Amino acid sequence: MTGGFFAILDDIAALLDDTAVMSKVAAKKVGGVLGDDLAVNAEQASGHASARELPVLWAITKGSFRNKAIILPIAFLLSAFAPWAIVPILMLGAAYLSYEGAEKVLEYLRPGHHGEEQKGAVDEAVKIKSAIRTDFILSIEIIVIALGVVAGEALTTQILVVTLIALLATVGVYGIVALMVRMDDMGFALVGFSQTSTGTKAAVLKRSGLLLVQAMPKLIKALGYIGTVAMLLVGGGIFVHHLEWLHHALAFMPFVLPELVSGLAAGMLLVALVLLWERLTQRN
């Protein structure tokens, strides 16, 4: 009986060891999407009144956990019984991200954009819903990539690795976003500490605090552009990686241009189709 107990412990240790190894591989694979996820969600969570930033971020984080709870079991079932359905689902997600990205590009180009942007920032409920929808698509991409890494492993290993990556993605991304959106508060705190210090220490604290406070609005503005580009890159990347003819057609483009061009072109086409549909329905 003792031997059986230690055999079980050995099996558990081996499983955990396999999980750790495969998790490292999967984390490297999803690293690019996590970077885009961070940029998109930082932009979505910013732009609110200081007192509302963390509550808004927490609402989005809870939505992200719900997204993972919905996607994970469906992903495992599809992987086991209908793997052919995964790519079409990814394509639909890519279309949504490309559409959202293209809409933002058109907003940036439209005259009077800045005033409308401030007005839109007030409606946090709309922004939370939009952020959770975007997180849903990015979560699908992260989970599918992680699932692809462990596709040949035992089901238990697949569940442990993919679930771990999904949870780390949410905790890591939104933890970093929380630090970013409260950067100005950290700056004011440093300035406050400088008033109770003297000499070089006081000067360094004050200078560092003011730097954080001054950098905050610039960072928020930059995140808006970075988040838009990130959505186009993720959406276009799905098209390029799963449509062989598109991959070959854009092979001459360097760096990330194939993904960016694909995402922007698809997004603009979808925006045009939506506008055409709205005009046709209004006439009727």
Rank of each mutant, 00 (worst) to 15 (best):
A189E: 12
W84C: 01
D17I: 02
V149D: 00
K28W: 15
A169V: 04
L15G: 10
L164Q: 06
D135C: 07
D123F: 10
I143C: 05
F252Y: 11
A75D: 09
I8N: 00
F252A: 15
I238S: 03
F5G: 03
L168D: 02
I137N: 05
K221I: 01
S130H: 13
L77C: 03
G32W: 14
V87Y: 04
S208T: 15
A203M: 11
A203I: 12
G31R: 05
K29S: 12
L223S: 04
A251W: 00
F76G: 09
S46M: 07
V181P: 02
D36K: 00
A230E: 06
Y96G: 06
L223W: 11
L260M: 12
G172A: 13
M180E: 07
G101A: 06
G47C: 04
G227I: 03
V240M: 08
P217N: 07
W84Q: 15
A7V: 07
G235T: 07
D184V: 05
S139Y: 00
F193V: 08
G235S: 13
L106A: 13
L223Y: 07
D135N: 15
I238G: 05
L276R: 15
L92G: 13
I137A: 13
L257P: 08
P258G: 06
Q282P: 00
S23F: 12
G227T: 10
H48G: 11
A189D: 12
E153R: 15
P55K: 11
H247C: 00
G35R: 00
H248V: 12
T228I: 00
D123E: 13
K68S: 00
P73L: 03
G112V: 08
I140H: 01
L210G: 03
A154F: 09
I132M: 04
K218A: 12
T170R: 01
M231H: 05
K24Q: 14
P73R: 02
V105Y: 09
V181Q: 03
F65A: 11
I86F: 07
D11V: 03
E117K: 11
S139C: 13
K119C: 00
L138M: 14
L260R: 01
L106G: 02
G187T: 11
K24P: 03
L147N: 10
A222Q: 04
